[in-house]
């Protein structure tokens, strides 16, 4: 069932992703934004602080900071402080390499921050094959430091072909460390597009993961896997794409997009150097089109009420058709496996 209040349009997003910089000290193979060096003309400190004030005025509840590595940005703590001074809750996605005891102590002074440390395997070799040498130990060190603080901390794992068989072990690792596990969907954007075929989970892996999720309600996924999750689990959250309805994305240079996985000219909703956030949220044609998006090709599917066509970003990246339905939804995984069996039986 859809949500009539969301469809009527909210006055601002509930939360948004703000990629504060493209600078990153790692070169992860699945990176959604191909982070490496800072983008030319990233928002400066004054522009970033002005945006925080705008988001506060519009009633945005939470900002999810990503990048790049947010802590690579010299003024990042200043931006965080500005959020917290206004009561805006924050969540930081970090690779953990720059987490120090001093930084943890500083972040602990507010009760408004949560941290997700990226870790892409329960085995060092699995994680390092995706994220690079030394990343496993750095992430574990960061997690151990954070667990000594009151900061709500989670491991964030992007499900790939290489780590799909380690998800249960990831959960055990999270439990040993005293943190929660959050699993995100791998999508073919940024460097992730270049490495899509190597890293994409197979339909059988996705199906197994879907069954595992149904048994593990304490594992968070955000809305990443709403096209894969069971009806029971969907009681934990919304069952539709929230892009331009509940959330959106701000790029390092102040461009606004429906979501972090659709940061291209085609999906540009506005430029914060030209228009206010409110003007963009209220008037963007791209946002209007997302709010009216109906995946008619999926309407006859028995699971339509559970996913409403799934993730438009995956549909766009794989089929160049935002209205085509999620190519990796649960139904399509089942069909794909059945087709493969038929082919193999015929052979």
């Amino acid at each position: 069932m859809s949500n009539k209040f969301v469809e009527q349009g909210l006055r601002s997003p509930v939360n948004l992703t703000w990629e504060v910089t493209l600078a990153c000290n790692l070169r992860c193979r699945h990176c959604l934004s191909s982070s490496a060096e800072p983008a030319a003309n990233e928002l400066n400190t004054a522009e970033a602080l002005a945006l925080v004030e705008q988001l506060h005025q519009e009633g945005v509840f939470q900002i999810n900071f990503g990048g790049g590595e947010p802590f690579m940005r010299p003024d990042f703590l200043q931006i965080l402080d500005a959020c917290h001074a206004r009561g805006i809750m924050t969540c930081i996605s970090t690779n953990g390499t720059l987490i120090t005891p001093e930084l943890v102590e500083q972040l602990s002074r507010t009760r408004l921050v949560a941290i997700q440390v990226s870790l892409d395997g329960a085995e060092k070799s699995t994680c390092e094959a995706i994220r690079g040498k030394g990343t496993f130990e750095d992430a574990i060190k960061a997690l151990e430091l954070l667990t000594l603080s009151p900061i709500p901390t989670s491991i964030n794992t992007v499900l790939t072909k290489e780590n799909a068989d380690e998800i249960q072990a990831m959960q055990q690792l999270a439990e040993q460390l005293g943190v929660t596990l959050r699993i995100s969907r791998f999508r073919p954007s940024g460097r992730g597009a270049d490495n899509w075929e190597e890293l994409r989970p197979s339909p059988s892996q996705l199906l197994a993961f879907s069954a595992w999720l149904a048994e593990n309600n304490n594992v968070r996924t955000g809305d990443s896997f709403f096209s894969l999750t069971s009806q029971e689990r969907q009681g934990l959250g919304l069952n539709l794409c929230g892009a331009a309805k509940l959330t959106c994305c701000v790029s390092p240079t102040g461009m606004v997009y429906p979501c972090a996985f659709l940061q291209s000219d085609r999906f540009e909703a506005g430029d914060l150097r030209q228009n206010s956030f409110k003007e963009i949220w209220d008037n963007s044609e791209i946002f209007e089109s997302f709010r009216g998006l109906r995946i008619h090709s999926c309407e006859d599917c028995q699971r339509f009420d559970q996913c409403h066509g799934g993730c438009p970003a995956v549909a766009y990246h794989l089929k160049d058709d935002i209205q085509g339905g999620d190519p990796e939804c649960l139904e399509r995984c089942v069909t794909s496996i059945a087709d493969d069996r038929k082919k193999s039986n015929a052979a």
Binding site: Q8, L10, V14
Partner: peptide, 17 residues
């Protein structure tokens, strides 16, 4: 926060609305 229909509550622990 206020919305046209009334009030929108957000719980960051879920998150849930």
């Amino acid at each position: 926060r206020r919305e046209r229909f009334g009030l929108l509550f957000y719980d960051s622990r879920g998150p849930r609305l």
